[in-house]
Amino acid sequence: MDKFIELGQDMAALWLQYWDRYLVGIRSTLILAVVATLIGCVIGLVCGILNTIPYSKNDSLPKRFVLKLIRVIVRIYVEVFRGTPMVLQAVFIYYGLPYFTNQQIMFRGNSGLWLAAIIVVSINTGAYMAESVRGGIISIDPGQTEGAKAIGMTHVQTMTSVILPQAFRNILPQIGNNFIINIKDTSVMFIIGFIEFFGQHRNIVGNNNMYFQSAAIEMIGYLTMTLIASFLLRRLEKWLDGNSSYELVQDDALTLSAGTYTHPGKGTPFDERSPEGALTQEQRERKHQELKHGRSRGER
């Protein structure tokens, strides 16, 4: 028990002394994770879409060749970047690019560091997302594609109007997954000297040897970030799913209740004697909402 109290005191002391540096680190971590996840999603989306363009034996040879080539290239990209550690990818890109281009391409200064870090994490995320997007697209019932084709939609129209909106909902948990992984895994960017939350920790303990105490602060910090992220992602999913109920558009019910709208003060339209007694509980609830908010729930 004493140990915990001691640890707590040390952590408090560390935090009081260095809180601004920890916060700067958290800011860098979050910016890098958000930006790289977004760019990674775009890369993944493009790869996933290119990868699922259908072709048949009847298509012309150049078309089939190009589509096959695209699939091979995407495949290689995915396998290489999914199959190697991000730490090493960072080294290869940060040091490797200047080496191979005879210092033509260099990541100079702080902005160079940011650029390199964003590139590495984005490409890495993109490799994972490419597979998720492909999975999301092929998981949509082929009947959806057939339904769209049957009314004359082209492949592009089918994708944008029917398949991708549904696929996006299905891969959203995967995007969240990648975001949370990125919050944590951006810590390996210390290898190229990018100072984020974990990098700050390394700098701080370099001065005072309070390695374990600072690590405890890091743990709490990372866990807080990921918990908030997963909470927000859940909220986003719920919001996208929308209302589970829908509104019946029934002329009769509206006519019946039309006259009662103007007198909400004189008793409610839902009294036993009102002609709306015929409405179901659910419809009544809806009318209540309409009176309160001036519009129906279904129309959000």
Partner: peptide
């Protein structure tokens, strides 16, 4: 036009 056994309405 085509009407399918499994309806194939757009779920979204």
């Amino acid at each position: 036009g085509m009407v399918f056994q499994s309806f194939n309405l757009f779920n979204n």
